[in-house]
Nucleic acid binder design. Sequence first.
DNA 1: TAATACAGTGTACACGTGTACGCTTATTTA
DNA 2: TAAATAAGCGTACACGTGTACACTGTATTA
Lengths: 208, 208
Amino acid sequence: MSGVRAQQKEKTRRQLIDAALSQLSAQRSFSSLSLREVAKEAGLAPTSFYRHFTDMDELGLTLVDEAGLTLRQLMRQARQRIAKGGSVIQISVETFMEFIESNGNIFRLLLRERSGTSAAFRAAVSREIRYFTLELCDYLQQANKLDADIAYLQANAAVTIVFSAGSDALDIDEKSELKQLATSTIQQLRFIARGAADLSSRRKAGKV
Amino acid sequence: MSGVRAQQKEKTRRQLIDAALSQLSAQRSFSSLSLREVAKEAGLAPTSFYRHFTDMDELGLTLVDEAGLTLRQLMRQARQRIAKGGSVIQISVETFMEFIESNGNIFRLLLRERSGTSAAFRAAVSREIRYFTLELCDYLQQANKLDADIAYLQANAAVTIVFSAGSDALDIDEKSELKQLATSTIQQLRFIARGAADLSSRRKAGKV
DNA sequence: TAATACAGTGTACACGTGTACGCTTATTTA
DNA sequence: TAAATAAGCGTACACGTGTACACTGTATTA
């Protein structure tokens, strides 16, 4: 019952996943990857692929799950930093930018499949982003004492802005430009925060 | 010099462009289109394609240009409506949503190629979006008397939010959900506008 | 009118694709 | 220990791809 076999199987499954991830790049999208290429990179015969996934799509959805996991790690990391003090918005953006820098291909995967041709992929990505947004929403709600609906609008807008900035960051290598992008993003997030706080206070004053 | 020949050539060129556009859908991205498919749809032999474009990429870039044109038409349409009075933000969002409804595939093209694998495509799309943003920036600057930098931040954030909403709209058919999406988007744009106006007034009061 | 340019055709090729099928080999089960 | 199970392999096939090449027929030019 030790499961030498199951263990080996899990290992080659990982090899397939890693092979796929390693082939992703600015020039290579998941949908352009072929089953044969991935199998080859993993050191497997093409037909062995089927022992682990029925489809490239199934592999792809697994990758999206991985990406969601990484995204949640990011959240945790940001929260740790925030707990140590400092501007919430600034630290969040900095953390996100670092994430992009070291996980560019995973982030690209999310960006691309979000508007891709597979409904299943789109749903999976939007689910991951929704989790991400909801966590932020919770945070805003209790940290800033906002109503649920306002907090959600702010969280949703903030995530949109940050993801868009991340997307732009992928096409920049100049350090100073990245710095500039971060600064602009921070300012935009402040706009949103201000607007949300403003609506909240007007609502509490009974004007809305 | 009438150019019967040149005229005919232009016509089949258009047929190729239209053929490509007509094959785009939620399930079909430009990059998944083959030269042969497009030629066939246009009623041409595969090899005749080369008389008009060196590449599928060249066709694709032409499509992006078309999309940019459509986008600018949208702008003009929105401005006309705004001139007739009403909430600027609301009218803009409504106009944009109508655009999505009748130009879904063109909008999808922009969304997809923005994060696609071709640097040329990404550059072309980001150029079109930049034009769009700059027009809005000009408008905000003179309508709201904002400084150039603040106006640009607002325009950029607004375009990001609206495009993201458009992307979400593509996966919704329920009428009431679309309405809800539009309402949320409008509120988010108001957040941004408020934040920008706020920074502007604080700056003018000499506090920043 | 004769020569030229050129849009469009059809054939042909090499290549990469997904996957069906039967086999081997080592672990697991009985 | 014998039988069953299952991961991984190799072969083979049909299919769609981009594009090279030689061609035809007609508008344009000289």
